[in-house]
Design a protein around this nucleic acid. Sequence first.
DNA 1: TCTGATTATGAAAACGATTTCATGAATTCG
DNA 2: CGAATTCATGAAATCGTTTTCATAATCAGA
Lengths: 328, 328
Amino acid sequence: MATIQDVAKKAGLSRTTVSRVINEHPYVTEEKKRLVTQAMQELNYVPNSSARRLRRQQTETIAVYVPRITNPFFSHLVEVMEKEAAKKGYQLILCQTRYKKEQERNFLELLKTKQVDGLILTSIENDWSEFEPYLSFGPIVVCNEYSDSAQVPSVYLNQIEGSYLGTKHLIDQGYTKIGYCTGNHKSSRVSKDRKIGFLQALDDAGIMMKEEWFFYNAYSVQDGFAAFKKLSELDDKPQAVFTGSDEVAAGIAKAAFDAGWRVPDDLAIIGFDNQPLAALMDLTTVEQPIDTIAKQAMNLMVEAIQAKKPLSRKEVILPFQLIQRSST
Amino acid sequence: MATIQDVAKKAGLSRTTVSRVINEHPYVTEEKKRLVTQAMQELNYVPNSSARRLRRQQTETIAVYVPRITNPFFSHLVEVMEKEAAKKGYQLILCQTRYKKEQERNFLELLKTKQVDGLILTSIENDWSEFEPYLSFGPIVVCNEYSDSAQVPSVYLNQIEGSYLGTKHLIDQGYTKIGYCTGNHKSSRVSKDRKIGFLQALDDAGIMMKEEWFFYNAYSVQDGFAAFKKLSELDDKPQAVFTGSDEVAAGIAKAAFDAGWRVPDDLAIIGFDNQPLAALMDLTTVEQPIDTIAKQAMNLMVEAIQAKKPLSRKEVILPFQLIQRSST
DNA sequence: TCTGATTATGAAAACGATTTCATGAATTCG
DNA sequence: CGAATTCATGAAATCGTTTTCATAATCAGA
């Protein structure tokens, strides 16, 4: 493996000059530049990134936290982020927290040990105070999730509005008995706000809610099946159900269909995210502009890294859109 | 940011001894060990990974190539790989090649510049000769795809068998006019073999194939819609269709349903992968043991890195399973 | 008690780049 | 023409570890 020293020797110049050529610094004559370039080619030389990282004190790498990459919402987020990062010369390290507090904390060492320049969080399990001390090691940007106490840039959607929009749609369609089926992480601001928006919409319309129409811890298609089962066994059943994701909505729709129910006549269903799945199952859903939040979060991160000082609190808030299909 | 030097000073010892404690080398008295540990804690010290990488000449990082992380087959693969890697103390860098030759080549620099210890390829766009020269910089393991000329370990499934299994099932159900709808990368061994298995099954049953029943470049749900459109406009329509993925199958099923066709009476459909989507749409499908191939590929990679010499050609082949549902 | 191993420690040399500093040559300016 | 810039280059310091080598102290065996 050739080093910069070998190149220098071959070109009959110093390491310094070779380094200047590599990094496109001024004050090198065309003549020497040519010599160096040629020597590099002949030796098949490429600078060793570990050495460069050490000297430069930066890694050109960013860690992205997601709960699970198989969740289509998060894989979409990551897809866009990786593209954007590659465009700017950064790489992505994938950190799956698996909805576990401890797993999430483990990955924080990446920042502290200088394996990455910064952290993008798309979901938050721990209290913000766990992250706070790590800010001195590099920038942290929050995307999708948000926390009031976090003194960092956040790119997110106002989930109160999102769920209000969806719930209002159900109400406008004439439903008055509406169920609520979502995941429900205590520490997740997204969860909390979705519920607030939901209740607000009911309240504004003067509609009552029943405790037994709340179904929690629903994340997957399977969970949707289970939710439908519980729902269908109630004496007083809801006419419509608001869900936290298209997967759950799809699960409910499928289970309902299998049980011989008609959607939306026997049960109206609204999803969240507008995944390809939603189109497939003809689900009405609330669309989130994933591409935009992913891009903006990545841009803020790169900006923070290059500015070399932590960005202060900053919120970037984007709108939702209702996609109406035949499930409502 | 505290360095090992600071710790040494605080503990009244040398860098060497501190390093020994960190790396759990023998020949350090309990007494000094305690001193060092305490100093490290007080200074909130963590070893700088760039320096360690440089000295150790290894990165504890592995690059994984996928076409797109939003493709559920690949996100599943990556999910399992990341888990397995984390277990062994390695991180994953995500490389999306976007089915582009050039993009794929670009990422090869990661290995050459020593940003990663090894490469796992889950899809291959370029000819193997493009990868060959990089073998001197670190191990490469192939997972899912395979290439006859590649002198590296490959964990893959015999796609001839897989598509034979699926096609045979259609034939056993009594269909004789069978369409074929898949992606079709010239350089992909998977594509080629699937087609071979398909044709073989037809041939073994003495069934004829029509050129107009082949539909190529189908990867997504959308592509499934398009394929159905073309199919439905034929004078002589197939009774069943073999697809290369559950997404495509789901797209066809949905389009067929919307057009008022009954599945499987008017058109039988078989998918591939057994994604959650397949259960949802009640699609018969050929299941691939994704968890197993992902784990085995990662284990081979870690083994190769730790053995410090490139592993030779080695094939690990695993079986398929037919999941029958109501679409056939 | 002497010899040879074993245990415990530190000084200094890597690892491979970039950056600072020094210096001489060439150019511009008054 | 001499002084002040600007241009071009290289020697050496630096980034923060780990590893090699040297050395002293302790221990075991004859």
